[in-house]
Amino acid sequence: MLSDITLGQYFPGTSVLHRLDPRSKILATLCFIVIIFIAKSSASYILLCAFAICCALLSRVPLKLIYKGVKPVFIIACLTALIHIFSTKGGEVLFSYGIVTVTALGVEMGAKMALRLLLLLLFSSLLTYTTSPIVLTDGIEALLRPFKSVGVPAHELAMMMTIALRFIPTLLEETDRIMKAQTARGADFAGGSILTRLKSLLPILVPLFVSSFRRADELATAMEARCYRGGEGRTRLHELAYGTLDGGCLAVMLLLTAAMAALRWLS
């Protein structure tokens, strides 16, 4: 029911990836995204794929679930591949019919582009599968904190995300309730032109907005009553702390980056 939506993609577990500090994971993901764009030779793609498969296995997240995470871009990846296959000229001609020519270089480029996309998504979904949204928020806040002096509202952003996470299930429940109440009054939400459909959503959207404003107001009062006055001077129940695992993660990412750089510029 609601629980699956709330937790986002999080798959609870205790694997190595689960135990990493969220900051390490976010940085590693960013690092990986950069590396993907350094990759050029086939060897570097094989290395990236091997690394990604290792990570997927390490996470202990069922492969079916990982596939589900990657699925949405499958079609886009295929399309990208096709475009490259048909538009790239050069190399040995594998197939030719009228104006359509498929070359070896085209196939290679197409496969690489598709792989880039898939790897990108695989890695970011591994991050969300192994990190609960709450911990992820903490990680983002901690990473943004140094930029506070240049005006990045790290605490406020994190507080907003926390409250959003907290109220998603509540608002979903509320939407369901309002929809049922209006359906019981004969409201029809399906069918009709776009305009009538939009109009038919008013009986849901207006109450939802009204109640959200009321909730926001009451929450603000409750927070004020509990001495909330912004991020200044606040302590945290769970301070993030790097461990040996994070050192390992750093080493692995450095090695990977070095290897990729070597494959690109030394060979």
Binding site: E174, A181, P207, V210
Partner: peptide, 14 residues
Amino acid sequence: IGIVFQYPEHQLFA
């Protein structure tokens, strides 16, 4: 069948 849900005032919209 008319259903008056809990806190029906939360469904007012017009």
